[in-house]
């Protein structure tokens, strides 16, 4: 197992191997995320029952929660890739961190935006400076900071390094976002989906949400793979194997 992981790790460091293996994954990821999106949204918007308290306005959960989860997962992925780059100087890791940053920032923005739209009809306000909302806004600014640092340096390598360090420092915000609704009193409600307990949601409402979360991960994987392949082609453009691909 350990040997296999080690082998996989070394292979992931090879741009050529990554480019060739992901070629076959792209159509699957594209089809699955399209199907999942249609299934999840149709089930969520048309078939799930309205909530006893919030009526139909709760349905924005099918965008809001997947986007918020992805924004945090993407940040963790970016920080881990940054650490791999700092420790092993693996170029692939730096490129992955670079391509994940704007995708994660987009999901974060979607989560904040849909949250505001949800807040107005239920809470009665678009925005309140409670711990959950503020820490999520901080996550967006951390993304902006990482993107800016990656681009700001004269040499690409020092940009990647600075971005990776900020991503690792910003990692502390992730548990704060998660537990903000438990540590402090907030306007935002606690989590519906819990790791250890049963979700506090009716199954007819829960299944579309789970479909949407899985779909969003697949879509995220697709975006990261497509963008990483672009990075590979650009950085390896002088290599023979890339020239051969581009000529065909």
């Amino acid at each position: 197992m350990w040997q296999w992981l080690k082998q996989l790790y070394h292979r992931l460091g090879s741009p050529k191997w990554f480019y060739e293996i992901t070629e076959k994954w792209i159509p699957w990821l594209a089809v699955l995320s399209a199907l999942g999106c249609v299934a999840g949204l149709v089930l969520g918007l048309a078939y799930a029952p309205a909530d006893y308290l919030q009526g139909n306005s709760f349905r924005i959960i099918y965008i809001h929660v997947p986007a918020a989860i992805l924004a945090q997962s993407a940040f963790m992925m970016m920080a881990v890739a940054g650490a791999v780059y700092l420790i092993w100087k693996m170029k692939m890791a730096a490129w992955v961190a670079k391509v994940v940053a704007p995708i994660g920032a987009s999901f974060c923005l979607i989560a904040l935006f849909t949250g505001a739209i949800w807040g107005k009809p239920t809470w009665g306000t678009w925005w309140v400076w409670d711990a959950r909302l503020t820490s999520m806004l901080l996550l967006l600014f951390l993304y902006f900071g990482v993107i800016a640092l990656q681009q700001a340096m004269d040499s690409e390598e020092s940009g990647y390094k600075a971005g990776a360090i900020l991503a690792l420092v910003g990692l502390v915000n992730i548990p704060i976002i998660k537990y903000s609704v438990e540590w402090w009193n907030t306007l935002h409600q606690p989590a519906t989906l819990k790791l250890t307990e049963k979700p506090s949601m009716h199954p007819d409402m829960l299944i579309p949400l789970l479909i949407m979360i899985v779909t969003t991960y697949l879509f995220f994987a697709l975006l990261v793979i497509l963008r990483t392949r672009n990075e590979i082609l650009w950085h390896e453009r002088k290599r023979q194997w890339v020239k051969e691909i581009l000529e065909n």
């Binding site: 029952p49 309205a50 909530d51 006893y52 308290l53 919030q54 709760f58 959960i61 239920t122 809470w123 009665g124 306000t125 309140v128 306007l187 409600q189 606690p190 989590a191 519906t192 506090s200 949601m201 009716h202 007819d204 409402m205």
Partner: peptide, 11 residues
Amino acid sequence: LAKHDENYMPP
């Protein structure tokens, strides 16, 4: 402002 909890269910 109104708070709502994390429980969702049909009426």
